[in-house]
């Protein structure tokens, strides 16, 4: 069963408290070549605040509600695509990654996981092959709303490397923020590669 939006918001609040309490490591990313956990290297023309969690990172320019770049490396087969929890027997239908998934299936689990976080009216477009460095991957864009009606747009780069999924997901309000940074983030995703 879907987690309630309030629980999701409480989770976000706890995450914010964790950030404030120093549980997440915050750093500044300057324009240029930057590295993220999982051996991911990107070229960015933007400066970011970088919040590092044990298994993933969130980068933001103006604050997480306004724009955020999830960098999620090494999702193992059988794990929730957002690394929220390990799939359990009674959650067999959770959006979990499985080795060998097709591009459409990877897109679907990412979007279904977004639905779990409370996004509504999700639409995807532009599913296409892409390179994640030397690894074959996929790109797509999406649109979504909050239940209160705030419209977001986003873009995703994903690649299965061995039996693990790595993806970068950027989203920002369709009003102003998306258009302002979409070109820069598009180039950032094009530049993404593994350093080993």
């Amino acid at each position: 069963m879907k987690r309630s939006g309030c629980v999701a918001r409480m989770f976000a609040l706890l995450m914010a408290i964790a950030v404030l309490a120093g549980c997440a490591d915050e750093r500044l990313v300057q324009p240029g070549v930057a590295s993220a956990n999982g051996g991911i290297v990107i070229d960015t023309s933007l400066a970011w605040s970088r919040f590092v969690f044990p298994r993933y990172e969130i980068w933001t320019i103006d604050g997480i509600p306004l724009n955020r770049l999830y960098i999620v490396p090494a999702v193992k087969s059988g794990e929730h695509v957002f690394l929220e929890h390990r799939a359990r027997a009674d959650q067999a239908d959770a959006p979990t990654f499985h080795a060998g998934m097709r591009a459409e299936e990877i897109r679907d689990i990412v979007l279904d996981a977004l639905t779990e976080t409370g996004a509504v009216n999700i639409q995807s477009e532009g599913l296409r092959p892409a390179r994640f460095g030397t690894v074959d991957g996929l790109r797509f864009e999406f649109r979504a709303s909050t239940v209160a009606g705030l419209r977001y747009r986003g873009m995703v780069l994903a690649a299965a490397r061995g039996d693990q999924l790595t993806f970068l997901l950027w989203m920002a309000p369709a009003e102003y923020y998306y258009d302002r940074d979409a070109g820069s983030v598009d180039r950032l995703l094009d530049s993404a590669r593994f350093d080993r």
Partner: peptide, 12 residues
């Protein structure tokens, strides 16, 4: 209204 429209709002 969002709580009513939400699938789990009224349940939760």
């Amino acid at each position: 209204g969002a709580a009513i429209a939400n699938p789990l709002g009224s349940l939760a």
